[in-house]
Amino acid sequence: MNELSLHILDICQNSIKANADLIEITITENIDKNIFMIEITDNGHGMSKLTLSEVSDPFFTTRTTRKVGLGVSLFKMAAEMANGSCVLSSIVDIGTKVTAIFEHNHLDRAPLGAIEDSINILILNEREIEILYTHKYNNQIYIFDTREVKKVLDGIPFTDYNVIMWIKNNIKEGIKMIQEEESR
């Protein structure tokens, strides 16, 4: 996976599998501190202490057991490659939070990539889930909230061509705007 937004899409599939109906994705870019941080929080069924310890165990990546998948391990590897780390915390019946930190300017930090494409797929999930996407770039902030969009749409489906294009444009341009605003 050569884009962080692909990892985000993948990690969110775990939240969906855990029956979450709200996923909060927060990107924090702090250039001065050289930090690129991704936080994904869901309100799914969570994990027991035992499962949590297994998921975070790097040795589990080498296993081919069905129960242990690749998603979290790959995300962890991506963070470690960029001199960062990835930690999970979880409370049964409350939810799960995945936090990954990267060195912003590290050569091996993958770019965020087409996050709008990932969000679009999450929106089209069969069981409806709400997405709150927050992107901070130094002091600037962009927010995309499916609940806000739904209020405006008033029943018009997310599968409408113009709606799809609006969402993608809003996210892509929104992120570009905060980055340009800051470098002014």
């Binding site: 899409l9 993948d10 599939q13 690749l70 790959l74 494409d117 990932s118 797929i121 089209l124």
Partner: peptide
Amino acid sequence: GMATCGISAGARPVMNTFVE
């Protein structure tokens, strides 16, 4: 298919192509 294996193999642009 949108699990880790699918996403790694390119399922995101494929799904978006169908949708669009």
